[in-house]
């Protein structure tokens, strides 16, 4: 069946097997290799992408449900001026190890920063926001520290408001 949707700002029209998951279409057909399969059961979050601005497990979304919607993967986040700040926080906090989980974490980080409405940042909030992304290398401490730092970053809020290159 034909599905039409936006990926990282680009309109795509694909003829797909309806049984395919969004993950398969993104990783295999569109070669967006940041989208990783870790479990295929929505438990690990390695396949996390933005679906209309919200983070979802692409392994649990039938690809046809993307029709008419907007998908952003890590590849697409790089087009946003705020990405370098996110990247630097992860780098400086030493939050990168094997990194198979990492693109999922970065997408969930962006979703959290973008969608969170609370006035103050606390660690529990950050942890809750990232609980759907499993990591086995880092023990999470450095990732949570990096995201806590980012949540306090005033400039990012501006960059979301003014320079977010996508509709949602």
């Amino acid at each position: 069946m034909i599905v039409s949707f936006k990926v990282n700002g680009r309109q795509v029209d694909l003829d797909i097997d309806p049984r395919k998951r969004l993950l398969d279409v993104l990783h295999d057909d569109l070669q967006l290799i940041s989208v990783k399969e870790g479990c295929g059961e929505g438990e690990c979050g390695a396949c996390t992408v933005l679906f209309d601005g919200q983070n979802v497990n692409s392994c649990l979304v039938p690809a046809f449900q993307a029709d008419g919607h907007e998908i952003v993967t890590l590849e697409g986040l790089k087009k946003w001026p705020g990405f370098s700040t996110i990247e630097r926080a992860y780098l400086e906090h030493g939050a990168v190890q094997c990194a198979y989980c990492l693109s999922g974490f970065v997408v969930s980080t962006v979703a959290y920063l973008k969608n969170q409405t609370e006035q103050t940042v606390n660690e529990d909030q950050v942890k809750y926001a990232l609980a759907g992304n499993l990591c086995r290398c880092t023990g999470y401490t450095k990732i949570v520290e990096a995201v806590k730092d980012l949540a306090e970053h005033e400039k990012l809020k501006e960059l979301f408001a003014e320079d977010w290159p996508y509709e949602r």
Binding site: G42, Q54, N55, V56, N57, V61, A131, G132, N133
Partner: peptide
């Protein structure tokens, strides 16, 4: 329920 990712779908 589950994670934010699950709650979003």
């Amino acid at each position: 329920i589950g994670s934010i990712q699950i709650q979003n779908r």
